[in-house]
Design a protein around this nucleic acid. Structure first.
Lengths: 191, 191
DNA sequence: TGTGTAAGCTAATAACATTAGCTTCGGCAT
DNA sequence: ATGCCGAAGCTAATGTTATTAGCTTACACA
């Protein structure tokens, strides 16, 4: 019989497809195995188990977000960079709403892969503030506040927490303005 | 044999204890039944199943939050009310971190109980802005932004998304200042 | 005191994760 | 070419959980 040719990476690919198509709760080893064309126990040759697979999926989700954020700010600086970053964060989550579950728990420190991916994502945001003239300690706190705003917004949005969908775009535009004002308050000198 | 005297309310109480003590993933019917002193199938006399129990738990979690928010703003108005509200939101979630999972999905419209609880919670926030002189459409959007900020912050905080814990308090104080500035931009006339 | 209903029970089924141990494909050295 | 051996796959078995069906009995109330 022809082998399926699985690798950890492929297993995670299949898992992500499953999550995107049928939601985070549909991520079971049985479903992944079926879709990959192998028996369930065969997956254990490539992953440590369901918890391990979830961890790897979360890592890939964060990596994907980081990449998209990074691409969004390329060549931009100042206000433009921040606005592009926040827009990219929202649009990425909206395009794959089921993945948001995997953005809701930070990696444990003993997971270097996941920690690295997470750090990269935060660093992109951090770097987008480089052109703002912030005092040292303010950079970290300001990054946290921007993350809180945009993360809270998209989490509530994809959860349907805003009621009627109309006008949510306008609310997000206001969020961008508020983010900018927040930065201006801290670095009024920046162009 | 003496009956256990269960009711839907008691089952949810037990479920909440379980969540608080052992985390949201530990919420299984088997565990609830054991703790309640009955056999697992007996729970079906009071709840519709696991999904139903989760729904009821989520409702109670939102009710609890709404109550605490409401208590926090009693007798306050303007800036004081908003600051107290946001502080209460954070402290409530921090005191029962495992419950946050149940704040991350909005109720479906066909669930009147849950929808009502959710609406009450949002209304408390909405009402806290009453003393601000906002134009009509701005009230809804402003409420959303405050919710996004504080919800995003506490979600990231309890998930451990902020790295080192020190200084998180200071970041939250900045969030309060930013929320105030955000309101001042929209209603500069308010005292 | 009798009776009906709701609260409890046991038994059975199905989905899933996980472990153990077997089989075989296919790359690689001879 | 051929034979070896490790990795990739398999089946079988176990344990946990949710759920349904159908039985029994406590207890409120007539």
């Amino acid at each position: 019989m022809a082998r399926a040719g699985l690798t950890p990476r492929v297993v995670v690919d299949v898992a992500l497809d499953l999550v995107d198509e049928r939601g985070a709760d549909a991520l079971t080893l049985a479903a992944v195995a079926k879709r990959a064309g192998v028996a369930t126990p065969s997956l254990y040759k490539h992953i440590g188990g369901l918890a391990d697979l979830r961890r790897m999926v979360a890592t890939r989700v964060v990596e994907g977000l980081a990449q998209e954020l990074n691409a969004a700010v390329l060549g931009l600086s100042g206000r433009d960079a921040v606005r592009a970053l926040l827009r990219a964060y929202r649009s990425h989550v909206r395009s794959r709403p089921h993945r948001v579950r995997f953005l809701e728990t930070a990696p444990t420190p003993d997971d270097p892969e996941a920690s690295r991916a997470y750090r990269v994502a935060v660093d992109v945001m951090f770097a987008a503030l480089r052109t703002y003239d912030l005092v040292e300690g303010e950079r970290v706190r300001t990054t946290r506040l921007l993350r809180s705003m945009v993360h809270g917004f998209v989490v509530l949005e994809v959860a349907g927490g805003f009621g009627l969908p109309e006008d949510v775009d306008a609310t997000f535009e206001e969020l961008l303005d508020d983010a900018e004002a927040l930065l201006d308050r801290r670095a009024p000198s920046t162009a």
